[in-house]
Design a protein around this nucleic acid. Structure first.
Length: 769
DNA sequence: AAGACGCTGTTTTTT
DNA sequence: ACAGCGTCTT
């Protein structure tokens, strides 16, 4: 135990060894949050305060859950299997699998990912002849997920106008459709298990008693339903003893409001759980002083903080390097130069991160990196299980496990093509609707040529199910890849080599899955849970009803095939394992959260981009952008670069942006401007701006034309020029129209918005940037 | 049933 | 600019 606790600082130690009461740990960036969380669990177990089965630890991502498990098994000599450690969705899936009857779900219910959900909605809209102009599928999805995330069923949503009433109706119809097909979406996993526990008293009480300690990571990211779920499981508000909820989070890193996260849950938790133990972890072990000072000073501009100031023992380190580029191309060029310098100084490429606010910014930088021959890795593309060919294979597997999944049916009934056309499908859908059954079940009602091709498809699925009855999962997957003719189809396609490879990879994914999840290598993939699996001791409630506890491995509650399909939906896999390559890391600021690098570039620091223009319209939007900037800054250990550009190509048009307001919120002494005398006067000094940018303007003539376009009708002002206005502050001239006395300029005043001013009237001052 | 054409939206993302 | 779609064409 001494071992466990040594090297913890006083705050960390206090947090780890808190008594079994609700606690809120405000953990700043780089303050050892995961360490505290895992050490707390290890300490609780090692001191005999709780058995592994009494632990419930919740994260948002699989990565975080895995990390926690890895660290725990390094600390504890015990098997981590009895503990419930996982994502909200993973744990809810486990709960629903175990208690599928009580949750009114089929044993083989399947999970829709976001793509599947959208296409299910599109299908619904079509079936009910809904005008998709008035009710776009996307907004229906948004509405439904919003309601579910708030814990509301269709019957609970108050509609204020006819359009909303329609939305509510669609919500109800969608839920019916899902129920009929035996599928649940992500939000449904949460809501259904919440409802299961709140309606079923014996179950609820069982789990409430079982979990003595509930620990939550990234608490600031919880949505309302997740918070309600935690309250329910912890027994909050009940008179009897309840479990201790240990919430770890950082309100300054709350950057997911747009997907329903509610930072307010932190304050609500403090009050509703009567939190006596609030501990702030403010000692930062990651960043040098100038970087931390920048982060602290920036975030101090936010109101409504719980209050926290990071400190470090690491010394000031280097100043933050700031660069103003003339164009996005030149910005990219500069990044490449600096990266080369870093590498020459001995930095490894994987310790260089380029962060941007939006994905669209990556293109230019990627292009420049490619030309320079610097290996790079872009985060956040298509993930393995999202690839079309893999989704197709999954759909065949889904049909074998649950033939009523119409989404899966439609995805592959004619892929690879087998002569089943749109018309045939429409007829089939008509029959299915008429009898209220699934497409698969409606096939026997079809006659004629169309009927026989459809029943051919069904026979193929049935045949594969029969053939694979006794097979282990990897073997089954191989049979399906071949039997579905997916493999041979892609093998004949000219660009199909990668796809074949991805499909082949599914067999190894299945092999790995089977061994990791504790299914025997030879366990039949079908036919329910493993026969020889040891279920936990049965629980008998007061009425003598036996309840199966979900503490045993998943193998006891679901078949390898069902489990594998859940896995494919809940853990979409990495995007291209370019591992092994020492590559520069490129990603959005959002996806950088939780990561750290020696060297970080924050790019595109311009008004309108970062903070993003759409953030100024939502209340609290700019504060969320500031938190995002805070996250970006605190990713860096040793060296931080920030850059912005005067011009940028966006949506096919050149935009003229001002530098980000965030620069004004950073400590001057921590910044080192690398471009003091920049190219604002490029018109007079055109060489610097246009020669730096590797633009191919073709000829002097083309250049002259572009210049002429930018000159403002003899007004004396130029497009792209920085100006100052008494009322609106600093801005950039974006456009000039008319000439002489009628000359007007469109000016981007950043936070004050876009204005059109009459140049003969407006009092503008030239601003040498 | 694949390929061409035109329309649309375009902040951030995990499960 | 450009990708991803839905619809129309061959």
């Amino acid at each position: 135990m001494q071992n466990l606790l040594h090297n913890l600082n006083p705050e960390q130690l206090a947090a780890v060894t808190l008594p079994a009461q609700s606690a809120l740990i405000l953990a700043g960036a780089g303050s050892g949050k995961t360490r505290v969380l895992t050490t707390r669990i290890a300490w609780l177990i090692q001191t005999g305060q709780v058995s592994p089965a009494g632990i419930l630890a919740v994260t948002f991502t699989n990565k975080a859950a895995k990390e926690m498990l890895t660290r725990l098994s390094a600390m504890l000599p015990i098997n981590t299997r009895g503990m419930w450690i996982g994502t909200f969705h993973g744990l809810c899936n486990r709960l629903l699998r175990t208690h599928y009857r009580d949750a009114a779900l089929p044993q083989t219910f399947q999970i829709l990912d976001s793509q599947d959900q959208l296409s299910a909605i599109k299908r619904l809209l079509k079936a009910f002849n809904i005008d998709d102009e008035k009710f776009p599928a996307k907004s229906v999805v948004y509405f439904i997920n919003g309601a579910k995330d708030a814990g509301l069923r269709a019957g609970d949503v108050e509609a204020h106008d006819p359009a909303e009433r329609k939305m509510v109706e669609l919500y109800g119809l969608y839920d019916d459709q899902c129920q009929r097909e035996g599928v649940v979406d992500f939000a449904e996993l949460l809501l259904r298990s919440y409802e299961l526990l709140s309606r079923n008293q014996p179950l609820r009480e069982h789990y409430q008693q079982r979990f003595k300690h509930i620990l939550v990571d990234e608490f600031q990211d919880t949505n309302d339903l997740q918070y309600k779920w935690l309250k329910l499981l912890s027994g909050q508000g009940q008179s009897q003893a309840r479990s201790a909820l240990f919430a770890v989070g950082d309100d300054d890193q709350s950057i997911y409001a747009f997907r329903g996260a509610n930072v307010g849950n932190m304050r609500a938790f403090e009050q509703e759980f009567n939190v006596q133990n609030l501990i702030k972890l403010e000692q930062n072990y990651r960043s040098h002083g100038h970087i931390l000072d920048s982060a602290n000073m920036l975030i101090a501009n936010n109101s409504k903080r719980l209050g926290k100031n990071l400190r470090t023992d690491a010394g000031h380190g280097e100043q933050v390097r700031v660069y103003e580029a003339s164009s996005d191309l030149q910005e990219a060029q500069w990044i490449i130069e600096e990266t080369k310098n870093l590498i020459a100084e001995g930095a490894s490429r994987s310790e260089v991160a380029v962060l941007y606010r939006s994905n669209a910014q990556s293109r230019v930088i990627e292009h420049a990196l490619f030309s320079a021959g610097i290996p790079y890795h872009v985060y956040g593309g298509l993930r393995y299980f999202q690839r079309a060919e893999v989704k197709h294979a999954i759909a065949y597997l889904q049909l074998m496990d649950n033939p009523h999944n119409d989404s899966a049916f439609l995805r592959v009934v004619n892929f690879p093509t087998r002569g089943i056309g749109v018309r045939t499908i429409e007829n089939l859908q008509g029959a299915a609707q008429q009898y209220g059954i699934s497409l698969y079940a409606a096939v026997p009602y079809m006659s004629g040529k169309a009927g026989s091709s459809l029943s051919g498809f069904v026979k193929m699925i049935e045949g594969m199910r029969f053939e694979t009855q006794q097979m282990a999962l990897p073997e089954l997957v191989r049979v399906v890849l071949e039997g579905s003719t997916l493999l041979s189809h892609y093998a004949t396609e000219k660009e199909g080599a990668d796809r074949v490879e991805n499909l082949e990879q599914m067999v190894s994914a299945a092999t790995q899955f089977v061994s990791e999840e504790g299914y025997g290598q030879g366990a039949p993939a079908h036919l329910g849970p493993r026969a020889d699996a040891q279920a936990g001791a049965p629980i008998v409630n007061a009425d003598g009803i036996e309840i199966l506890d979900a503490d045993a491995p998943l193998a006891t509650v679901m078949s390898p095939l069902s489990a594998f399909l859940s896995h494919a939906s809940l853990e979409a896999g990495d995007n291209q394992a370019q591992a092994g390559q020492d590559a520069l890391q490129m990603m959005t600021v959002h996806s950088a959260k939780g990561l750290e690098f020696d060297n970080v570039f924050i790019t595109g620091l311009e008004e309108g981009l970062f903070p993003h223009e759409s953030s100024s319209k939502e209340d609290g939007g700019v504060e969320e952008e500031r938190r995002l900037m805070y996250v970006a800054i605190t990713r860096a250990r040793k060296r931080l670069y920030m850059c912005f550009s005067q011009t940028r190509m966006l949506h096919g048009q050149t935009r003229y942006n001002m530098k980000s307001r965030f620069f004004d919120e950073l400590p001057e002494e921590s910044l080192k401007w690398l471009s003091p005398k920049v190219q604002s006067h490029w018109f007079a000094n055109k060489k610097s701006a246009w020669d730096d940018a590797p633009l191919n303007l073709g000829s002097d003539n083309a250049l002259a034309q572009r210049m002429a376009q930018k000159a403002g009708g003899g007004s004396g002002w130029r497009i792209g020029e920085a100006v100052s206005h008494g009322k609106f502050g600093e801005g950039v001239i974006v456009n000039i129209e008319g000439s002489g006395a009628n000359c007007r300029a469109q000016i981007n005043f950043g936070s004050h918005g876009m204005k059109v001013l009459d140049l003969s009237v407006a009092k503008l001052e030239r601003l040498g940037r």
